[in-house]
Structures are given as structure tokens and as C-alpha cells.
Design a protein around this nucleic acid. Structure first.
Length: 298
DNA sequence: CTCGACTCCTGCTGGC
DNA sequence: TGCCAGCAGGAGTCGA
């Protein structure tokens, strides 16, 4: 799933394909995903022109010319796939992707392609999400931030308003481990399991440390670490683990630069190695894997 | 209120 | 080679 850098990358790719274009056809292939689709979603998209995009945390908002916005969350396994109408699915979509000989309308949906939009210039955009943890909703553009899913979100980590003081206030009094606190979208919007681990590593803070001990000097290290890891990942086009693909089908490269995530047992880049350090450790916190260096993260 | 456990769903990987 | 348990990027809900 896509965390903030992946959502940002997908949104930019989608913007290049859809911004300024009219949706001439849209169809849904199931009732919904995490939540039911809004009634008549397909019909309400047809004929609309896409004005532009915005991201809020891990949510994308696609603004339409009728004053409504399409709210999209990719969940764990969601991706957006764009290709010319009639073209076969990209190879990475898997062996089940049918090489259809259909042209134009009524091309069968790809596997798990729950929502399809076609533009007047012949591009077909599909929302593919095998696990269906993602969601799609419609919200009046003027009320985007009052949507129930956006209302409670914390600050945008890449905005200047996200400061050590702001983070410190959010962490004050929290007894939960800092790693869990960073995954709480009310504390900061957009961090997920990978970048929470990576940011804590960069800041030299143990994921097990109680959140209320982070405000102050540690928060002053953590905020720049969060901004840096997110910015670098966006610059690399996001990361790609297993089934995640960018809107244009290219694969992000940031996973090659993970310092700790999915590196259990490997040598930490800041440590001399054995016997001083046993390498990167994996522990489970609130049911999720955490990777960290016990020697440099305190 | 705050926290951890559980839940939704499918697909891939690794160990036997 | 084949099978199956375990694990996966999220996040809302429930009960302690």
C-alpha cells in the first residue's frame, strides 16, 4: 500500500493522463470495496471533465467540473492502471489479464478491475484492488476536508506547518510506542509501516520508545527525518513491493534504498557489524512488522 | 479517552 | 514439483 510517496506518485501519473480530459464512459464492476460505491457512480462520472487532483494523506481527490470530487484510497493493494482503450493489460498485471481482442467499448474488465473510466482521447483508466481495502466516494469539492474520512486527519508532513512543535503536541501524553503513534493518521497524515520504520531509523529513535518521551529534542530530529524520507521516495517514484505499480506502469525504485524495512538480519549501514552489532532486527508491534537497529536507535 | 486485538480480502513466498 | 501456512503497504471497530 501505498503510503504517501506512492499515492503522490500515482496521483501525478493520473493527473498527466486525466487532467483536462472528459470522462466519456465509466463503469463499476462490483457494489463497492471497503464501502459501497456511491449510488450511480458510473453514470455520475460520465460526461464530466477532470479539472485536477489533490492529495490529502493517503487519499487522492479528483476534482470534476460539476463541483464534485472523487475521493480515492488505494488501501493495501490498490493501483491505477492506464492504457489505450483496446490495449492488453500490462504484463505485470498477471497471467490472468486477458489479451482481449475487443476494441473500444465493452472491453472486459481485468481481474479485480472494480472501476473503469475512459477518456475522450481513448485512454482507459482502471482501479485495480485485489484485497478491496481501498475505497471510492464522491464529495462536494467545497466540502472535501469535511468528508468523514478526511476530517480527522493530522497535518501534512511535507507542509511547512508540520514542525517539531506540532508533532510534539500530538505526541504529548501518548503512552503508545512511537512507531504506533506515527501510524496513527490523526498524528500525521500519510505515514505507513515502511516510512514510519525508515524515519525512526534516520532519527535514531527506537520504535519501542513511549511516544510521550519524543517531544522536544527527539521530535526535532524526527520531523526532518520524516520529511527527508518522504521527499526522497517521491523523487524516486515511490517504492514498489509486490503488487504495487504506478499509474504509468513503471515501477518505483525507492525500495532499493530502504535502510531497515524488510532487512532483518542484514547489517545496518551505520554500524560496524559483528561483534558490535547483530544487525537489523524485526519485531511485531500491534500486529505489524517493525524493523530497526537496536544499537543506533534508542 | 486510549490502547491493542481483531477484522475485512486476495495473492505471493518460503518452507517442507 | 506441489501444497499450505504465514505474511503483506491500511484503517475502522470493538472491548478492556
Amino acid at each position: 500500500m501505498p503510503e504517501l510517496p506512492e499515492v503522490e506518485t500515482v496521483m501525478r501519473g493520473l493527473s498527466g493522463v486525466l487532467a483536462g480530459r472528459r470522462i466519456v464512459r465509466a463503469e463499476v464492476h462490483r457494489e463497492g470495496m471497503r464501502f459501497p460505491f456511491p449510488p450511480g457512480l458510473g453514470a455520475r462520472l460520465e460526461g464530466r471533465r477532470v479539472l485536477g487532483f489533490r492529495r490529502r494523506g493517503k487519499y487522492m481527490l479528483m476534482r470534476l467540473d460539476d463541483g464534485e470530487s472523487v475521493l480515492i484510497h488505494l488501501g493495501m493493494s490498490g493501483r491505477m492502471v492506464a492504457r489505450p482503450i483496446g490495449a492488453p493489460p500490462a504484463p505485470r498485471l498477471g497471467p490472468q489479464g486477458r489479451a482481449s481482442d475487443a476494441r473500444g467499448h465493452n472491453q472486459p474488465p481485468g481481474l479485480h478491475e472494480h472501476l473503469v473510466m475512459e477518456t475522450e482521447n481513448g485512454i482507459r483508466v482502471g482501479f485495480v484492488d485485489p484485497r478491496r481495502f481501498g475505497c471510492v466516494d464522491l464529495v462536494p469539492t467545497a466540502e472535501e476536508d469535511r468528508h468523514r474520512l478526511l476530517r480527522g486527519l493530522g497535518p501534512e508532513p511535507l507542509e511547512d506547518s508540520f514542525t517539531p512543535e506540532v508533532l510534539s503536541d500530538a505526541l504529548a501524553g501518548k503512552r503508545t510506542p512511537i512507531k504506533a503513534a506515527l501510524l496513527d493518521q490523526k498524528v500525521v497524515a500519510g505515514l505507513g509501516n515502511i516510512y514510519a520504520c525508515e524515519a525512526l531509523f534516520r532519527a535514531g529513535i527506537s520504535p519501542r520508545r513511549s511516544a510521550h518521551t519524543v517531544p522536544g529534542e527527539r521530535a526535532a530530529r524526527l520531523v526532518p527525518a520524516i520529511k527527508a524520507v518522504l521527499t526522497e521516495s517521491i523523487g524516486a517514484g515511490g517504492s514498489s513491493l509486490r503488487d504495487y505499480v504506478r499509474a504509468d506502469g513503471e515501477i518505483g525504485a525507492f525500495q532499493e534504498r530502504f535502510a531497515v524495512y524488510d532487512r532483518e538480519g542484514q547489517r545496518c549501514e551505520r554500524c560496524p557489524g559483528p561483534p558490535d552489532c547483530d544487525g537489523i532486527r524485526r519485531i511485531v508491534q500491534s500486529g505489524r512488522s517493525t524493523f530497526f537497529c537496536p544499537r543506533t536507535q534508542r
